[in-house]
């Protein structure tokens, strides 16, 4: 097949990947820049990383972001799993389509509107803006992602497995924890990861709903960039890119391994009498 790789395919490949990754590569490169001027190369250095860990403001923001992401994704996973399971369980009641549709709606809602409406609500109930409000806001929009992921898993779930558990003496409540939850767990975990990432990323909704003392990392970066890009920001961004890339890599390796194991098992089963 090597014959197919003409100069055209090569250039298309290079162009496509540069388009995607050149900005990130530049960012990573300049995070190791000695010079304080972002666009002028002044030799290799890791001093911005050292400085980063002395920048209390950035570290605080990172810590807040992680806390918000952890709490909001955990609560969102709980609520989203419940609604995802229930929407498939109650096969038909009046207005089921409406409810399912309403679960999806926040996915397509412009973030500005979600943020603004949440802000209005917090003001209306006179809730002081801070860590709590930004967490609630993140739960609100990430819950529907979990619900969608769990619901699509439940759609292919063999309901007779639950019936079998009940037939063997398991009460409905126990059945959920002993049988249903372990089987849909991968979907629940990916829902959690998805909402964790979404919470880490979010800038718009956080800036509407947060208050003093609860500045998230994206907000901090954004506000610093407005005063001028410093190599410190490059360094923190490089760390973020590194974390995300490692996460994706690990997830890919795990799922590859599982696929390989499954394939091997199936071959084994086919050989047996």
């Amino acid at each position: 097949m090597n014959k197919g790789l003409s100069w055209f395919t090569w250039s298309a490949l290079i162009f496509g990947f540069s388009f995607l990754y050149l900005p990130i590569i530049l960012l990573v490169l300049f995070s190791f820049n000695e010079s304080k001027l972002v666009t002028v190369w002044g030799g290799f250095s890791t001093k911005w990383y050292a400085e980063l860990f002395n920048n209390q403001g950035l570290l605080n923001a990172a810590w807040v972001t992680l806390k918000v992401a952890f709490v909001s994704s955990s609560v969102a996973t709980l609520l989203g799993t419940i609604s995802g399971v229930m929407l498939t369980r109650f096969s038909s009641f009046r207005g089921r389509t409406l409810f399912t549709g309403m679960i999806y709606a926040p996915l397509v809602m412009p973030e500005v509107i979600t943020g603004l409406s949440l802000l209005l609500m917090f003001v209306a109930v006179s809730l002081d803006r801070g860590f709590l409000t930004v967490t609630i806001a993140h739960i609100t929009f990430s819950m529907c992602y979990v619900a969608v992921v769990v619901q699509s898993r439940m759609a292919t779930f063999d309901h007779s497995i639950e019936e079998a558990a009940m037939d063997l003496g398991c009460t409905p409540g126990k059945t959920f924890f002993a049988v249903t939850l372990p089987i849909i767990l991968p979907a629940v975990v990916s829902g959690w990861l998805l909402s964790f990432t979404l919470s880490l990323d979010d800038l718009v909704i956080a800036s509407f709903t947060t208050g003093p003392g609860a500045t998230t990392l994206p907000m901090k970066i954004y506000s610093q960039v407005r005063l001028g890009v410093t190599p410190e920001i490059n360094a923190v961004s490089t760390i973020l890119v590194g974390l995300v890339a490692t996460g994706v890599l690990i997830a890919t390796i795990i799922s590859r391994r599982n696929d390989a194991a499954r394939l091997r098992d199936e071959r084994l089963a086919a050989v047996d009498p």
């Binding site: 063999d158 007779s160 079998a164 037939d167």
Partner: peptide, 15 residues
């Protein structure tokens, strides 16, 4: 879950 009766399902429904 309180009947002294067990069932074998068409899909086998193994866990």
């Amino acid at each position: 879950y309180r009947r002294p009766v067990n069932m074998m399902f068409q899909s086998y429904a193994l866990f």
